[in-house]
Design a protein around this nucleic acid. Structure first.
Length: 304
DNA sequence: GCCTTATGCTCAC
DNA sequence: TGAGCCTAAGGCT
């Protein structure tokens, strides 16, 4: 479900939890993820992220590539592994912290003491990554082993990633070389890696940019400013496991920190509701195969 | 309970 | 351009 900012966050957390440790990897033999035995019991050197892709580096040309797609997600926890559920899942864990999975499974079957599965139980993101004992992957689009060459090929087909320190220059150059509407370009991973449907809508509103404006008609200064906005936006977007893109001053309540649920976005999924900035009804239509949301007044400028 | 929708992407036509 | 992947949440009845 995530955009690049959350992918990078998983990479950091999983590196902190498992980096340079021997990890166990389990996947049901009936699942599509047939490569687990190849990696089980090996040292995880670290976890990299580019765009919406994760790479778990086990060395020797063994990089577990994970793409969450639309439905994929990770859960994490301390203590013993949770009981297996019906769905096909992949687990990475530190057996020094979880204990022997065989024994735990038996305890679970006997209905022994319950324990917390998710960090969100305490209402915050507060679980110290050092305390994570296991993570569980559900519903990814891809979970397979890449060689270094394959990973490099992946990086080559992606555009600049704001979270990997890439500069605005490439972004500006690519956008200005195309007649395609900016809202379509922002969904293209070869233009800006990691941007997804929430960020495109919110970034365009923050820039007061008309979504239909062709890339080659946008001036360099404006594009550079959008990139400059994107970097801290992606870094700070996750608050209490929610994507937050509104500036406190634009929220009806002016509330800082964790905003009300209905104040988390300017336009994303707010069709028919009044724009926080100008009061005009937010509009929606399909664009690049996904629902685009925008304020026709704030973002009407200069199609000319 | 059922239906729709979703922060994504690939492939076939 | 549309189907398919595959899972959960939320809004309805």
């Amino acid at each position: 479900m995530p955009e690049g900012n959350e992918i990078h966050r998983w990479a950091e957390r999983h590196t902190a939890a498992f980096g340079d440790k021997v990890v166990r990897i389990e996947a049901p033999s009936t699942s599509r993820f047939v490569d687990a035995p190849l990696l089980d019991g090996r040292v995880l050197k670290g976890v990299r992220a580019v765009g919406k892709h994760l790479g778990y580096d086990f060395g020797k040309d063994r990089i577990l590539h994970v793409h969450l797609g639309m439905y994929g997600d990770w859960t994490e926890g301390t203590g013993p592994l949770p009981p297996e559920k019906g769905a096909l899942r992949v687990r990475i864990f530190d057996s020094k912290k979880t204990g022997d999975p065989k024994r735990v499974k038996q305890e679970s079957a006997e209905g022994s003491r319950p324990h917390r599965w998710y960090s969100e139980d305490d209402g915050s993101d507060a679980l110290d990554p050092q305390k994570i004992a296991w993570v569980e992957l559900r519903g990814p689009t891809d979970c397979s082993v890449y060689s270094e060459a394959e990973w490099k090929k992946l990086e080559e087909r992606l555009g600049p990633d704001p979270l990997n320190g890439d500069g605005a220059e490439r972004f500006v150059e690519i956008v200005r070389s195309k007649k395609t509407p900016i809202a379509v370009l922002l969904m293209d991973q070869s233009v800006a890696a990691g941007v997804g449907n929430i960020l495109r809508a919110e970034l365009l509103h923050r820039a007061r940019m008309n979504p239909f404006k062709p890339g080659n008609e946008i001036d360099e200064k404006t594009l550079k400013a959008m990139w400059k906005d994107l970097v801290p936006l992606m870094k700070s977007a996750m608050v209490d496991r929610r994507m937050v893109t509104t500036r406190p001053k634009d929220r009806p309540t002016k509330k800082t920190g964790s905003p009300l649920k209905e104040e988390t976005h300017y336009v994303y999924r707010r069709q028919g509701k009044p724009c926080f900035v100008c009061g005009e009804d937010v509009k929606t239509m399909e664009m690049a195969g996904r629902n685009l949301f925008w304020c026709p007044k704030c973002q009407s400028a200069s199609l000319q």
